[in-house]
């Protein structure tokens, strides 16, 4: 049994028939080939699979593809515009906010949501805003710097 869904992914219309139980993250990664969202756990805690659904940061391992029917989804692949990196992408590169890179797409999209809510967050607000995303490599020090860099660029 499948359900048919229509949604927008990175600005492009997508139509598909999916198993009702298919997770959004598997739909994005395996059906659409958008492998930027990664899977690091199955308890909605690591945040590596974070994407934007109608502007909200959502862990795509805990949402069904069927639930995204009618939604607009942005993944890390859709963040750069016209070949220009998003200021958050620049910030993570500039400030060494990543090492292995596995958590990075989710971290950047969560930070994107944070800056949409609060364009000039304090260090403490950045740390509060990103606590749903785990990074095992960086100790977070440079992630805070990366988000500050982006906030300054975007202001």
């Amino acid at each position: 049994m499948t359900v048919s869904i229509q949604l927008e992914v990175n600005g492009k219309p997508v139509q598909a028939a999916v198993e009702p139980r298919r997770l959004l993250v598997h739909f994005l990664r395996e059906d659409l080939g958008l492998t930027g969202a990664n899977i690091g756990c199955e308890t909605s805690l690591c945040g590596a699979c974070t994407v934007l659904v109608d502007g909200d940061a959502v862990k795509s391992c805990t949402m069904l593809a069927a639930q995204a029917d009618g939604a607009s989804v942005t993944t890390i692949e859709g963040l750069a515009q016209n070949g220009d990196l998003h200021p958050l992408q620049e910030g993570f590169w500039e400030k060494h906010g990543l090492q292995c890179g596995y958590c990075t797409p989710g971290m950047i999209l969560s930070a994107n949501y944070l800056l949409a809510q609060n364009p000039s967050p304090s260090d403490e607000e950045i740390r509060e805003g990103l606590k749903g995303n785990i990074c095992r490599c960086t100790g977070y020090h440079n992630i805070v710097e990366a988000v500050k860099y982006a906030a300054e660029r975007m202001s």
Binding site: T35, I76, W93, E94, G101
Partner: peptide, 17 residues
Amino acid sequence: KRREDPALITGRGKYTD
């Protein structure tokens, strides 16, 4: 700056899965 990063910050890095 790390040359590894452009692929990793755009979702183009390919991990095993």
